[in-house]
């Protein structure tokens, strides 16, 4: 009896202790978090505020929204960056189509087929995740140069298609391995070949992870900077990040204040595809971001 009451009082103690720690409005942590988040958003805030200003407004009131909003900045910016936006979208879409096809095939082969040297071959792909890119930068340039691919969209699409499946196969293999064998069995009885199993069974069952792979691929293409900077010098194939970098350099050299509004509108336009993807995919977008860190 005494033991029982003892135990009861024990749990009671824990509960009350926990309740004590679970009470209270936590003002300190909330305030700290909000302050840190506000500081983090400062660049984004500046980008949006300045993108709606005309030169006069920029000179007189730089830090707060000033009315009327100058929407014309966006038109002016679009006429400059629309080419970059389409170029980058084109590279991202064609590149991802290739990455998707090769990754699904590779993921399927490594997950669902049995053949000699499967693990060594898989290891050869996986090991590439740990090879820092820096050693390939200069020789890749020379390689694309000797193939005559520099200054063509192929110099951006091919690296995407060749490198993308490394991450793709890594992500898809374990996912494909988790699909129940019964589904494949019944399809095999219906006479499906490997090709049919890949595109009619595996792919439709893995749409979320394929979306994650797509987000990862798109974000990395959209953000790529150093490679397009050296691989493309023709204005007509320029990518968005490099295009905006060169534009901002030109503007800061010229010292012309009147174009800050349109420049920042251009920055905002460059962010829109990522915003749209985030609102479309939400959690998958975040997963894609995290996965992208796996490649050093």
């Amino acid at each position: 009896m005494s033991a029982l009451s003892n135990r009861r009082s024990d749990t009671g103690l824990i509960r009350s202790k926990r309740r004590a720690s679970w009470r209270g409005p936590q003002i300190g942590p909330h305030l700290t978090i909000v302050l840190l988040l506000l500081l983090s958003m400062l660049p984004v805030y500046l980008m949006l505020v300045v993108s709606f200003k005309n030169p006069l407004q920029y000179q007189h009131e730089r830090w707060f929204v000033s009315f009327p909003l100058r929407l014309g900045n966006y038109g002016a910016a679009w006429s400059i960056v629309s080419g970059y936006v389409w170029n980058t979208l084109w590279v991202a879409i064609v590149g991802f189509a290739g990455v998707l096809i090769l990754s699904v095939i590779g993921g399927y082969v490594f997950a669902r087929m049995r053949f000699p040297f499967r693990e060594p071959l898989y290891f050869m792909i996986l090991a590439l995740l740990t090879v820092p890119w820096v050693i390939s930068f200069i020789p890749s340039y020379m390689l694309y140069n000797s193939f005559g691919l520099l200054n063509t969209p192929w110099s951006l699409i091919i690296p995407n298609i060749a490198n993308g499946p490394v991450m793709g196969i890594f992500m898809l293999r374990s996912f494909f391995a988790g699909i129940p064998e019964e589904i494949y069995d019944s399809a095999r009885i219906d006479g499906a070949s490997h090709w049919g199993l890949i595109w009619r069974i595996t792919m439709p069952l893995s749409l979320p992870i394929l979306a994650t792979l797509g987000v990862l691929n798109f974000v990395s293409t959209w953000n790529s900077f150093l490679w397009p900077l050296v691989a493309i010098s023709k204005e007509e194939y320029q990518q968005i990040s490099v295009g905006l970098f060169l534009l901002s350099k030109e503007i800061s050299i010229s010292g012309d204040y009147s174009v800050w509004g349109p420049l920042f509108a251009g920055y905002t336009i460059a962010s829109l595809p990522l915003v749209i993807l985030f609102f479309m995919f939400g959690k998958l977008y975040v997963e894609g971001l995290i996965e992208s860190g796996l490649k050093v």
């Binding site: 983090s40 900077f225 901002s248 962010s271």
Partner: peptide, 24 residues
């Protein structure tokens, strides 16, 4: 809400983010 707010600055392309800091 906090988790959501953390993602927002990441929706700006890396180069643009750096250029905004240059302005700061």
């Amino acid at each position: 809400i906090y988790r959501f707010a953390i993602v927002i600055p990441m929706l700006v392309p890396g180069v643009v983010y750096t250029l905004l800091w240059q302005h700061i």
